[in-house]
Every structure is written in structure tokens, then in C-alpha cells.
Amino acid sequence: MFGASSRLQSRSLPTSAGPGSRCLLATVRTLDPRYLQIASLGILLTFGLGWLGFDQSLINVSVILATILATQLVLGWIMQPGRAFDPLSALISGLSLCLLLRAGSLWVLALGAILAIGSKFFLRVDGKHVFNPTNFAIAVLLLFTDLAWISPSQWGSQTWAAFLFACLATMVLSRARRGDVALAFLGTYVAVLFLRALWLGDPWAIPMKQMQSGALLLFAFFMISDPKTTPDRRGHRILYGVLVACLGAWIQLGLYNPNGLMYALFFLSPLVVLMDRAAPVASTDRYAWSRPSI
């Protein structure tokens, strides 16, 4: 009696669970990838605030998110009248700012949020915005004021493996088709770290430690791989990832500036415009959030 019942269950489980899980996966993959990114960034922020002791208060987070959504609403209403309010991209930029940007005053954080969204609306060429909004806000505040900073080591190295897993999972599931630029960047950057250690005769522990950085992964999977600000062609994207890695490593290791990656992406972003103009793609082949898996 028992045996028969068990067999029945073991036979029926795969047939009922199989289509269900495939269905769920398919749903996730056809979903606007920004939902998944928002979920990932939200989890990272919760983890950072709750467990890693980030130097960011809930008030700061509220100010950034409220300002960024309000700016998106107002500028969207003025610049693109008739278009429905789409908070998703602004929310991604806002959460990224919460994770990265630190300032002594609330108004500086609000300014960061306004700069981020402002850059998206005003700094446009050929129908694309030139800078990743979060990168633009951070780079401008770091380069031209002494009011803000970023804490690249706030993640520590102990949580790195889990972090890497979360980033890869988000990339695979979201099918944002920009994993190439993230991997090209990461591969080059890590190679530079190891080659430098080889040249200096340093123990591998040093490049390993430099590589195991949450900030590096966040940059690779959520900033440089922003589909809207990367070249349209794959070859260009890979070249772009390599160049950002090289310039970033030079600023960081050669000029001893801890914000090297932020600056490298900021300075090289205009290159995307040139690359896209050099070998344009049809507008239908351009990236659109509604067609993530194209």
C-alpha cells in the first residue's frame, strides 16, 4: 500500500513540476529585466544596510529615491509630454546611488539624484543618453566638488562569492544581452591585476584580494553593462569593456586614485557615440527594455 503510493508520487512529481518551473523561468525571462535588477539591487542594499554596516541611513536612502523619482516625473512631463511615467530605470539609478554615493549632507545626495536623471534627459546624442546616470552623478560630484565620496571597500571580501553568484544569476536571468561588456571588463581588469602582481613579484593574495570586491562586481554588472549606454555592436562592446578596464586600472594603480573605475567609465562614455556612429545598426536592432532577449 505504502509502496504503491510512493511510486505514484515519484512518478507524478516530475510531470507536474516540470512544466511549472519551465513556465516560471520563461516568465522571468520575458519580464522586463529591470524588475530583476531592482530586486537584486534592493536585496544588496538591504544586506548592506542591515548586515554590513553601510554608512548610509534610511533617511539618506529615502531622500535619494524620492528625489530621483520626482525628477524623473517632472522632467518626463516637461520633456516627453504624453508619455506614461516609467519609474523603473529611475529606481535602478536611485538604488545604485544608495549603494555607492556617500555624502555629509542630504542636499548633496539629492543633487546626485537630480544630476543622474538630468544627464539622461539633457545629454543625449542620436537618441541615446551618453552617460550611465549613476556614473555621471558620482563622477561629477567626485571630480568637481569635495562634498561626496564612495567607499569601494564597504563590501569587504567575505561576502564576495555570494555577491558574484547574485550578479551572474541576475545577468543570466535578465538576458540583458550586455553580459559581454561586463565579462570583457572583468576579464581585462583581473588580468591587469594579476600581471601587475607578477611583474612586482607580489604574492597572489594581493590581486586575489583586489579582485574580491563587491564594488567591482557592482560596477561590472550594474553600471558598465547598462544596455542603454553601451555600444550597439558586440565587438565594440568588448573593446569598450577592455578600454574602461585598462584606463580604470591605470587611474587606480598608477595614479593612486581609488575612484579610478568611476572616472574611466565617465571619460570613455563619449566613445560609445563614436563607435555607434562608425558602424550604425538599424533602429530596430537597438536595445529596448521591452525586447530584452532580442
Binding site: D55, R102, G104, L147, Y256, P258
Partner: peptide, 17 residues
């Protein structure tokens, strides 16, 4: 040497709290 293989690098922040 195991936990701090690299020299200490610093930055000044705008945090005066």
C-alpha cells in the same frame, strides 16, 4: 600578512560627523 596582504590605502571623506 594573511589577512592584510596589501598596504593600507586611504581617502579623506567629506564626512565631518
Amino acid at each position: 600578512a594573511v589577512n592584510f596582504p596589501e598596504d593600507l590605502m586611504f581617502q579623506e571623506t567629506a564626512d565631518s560627523s
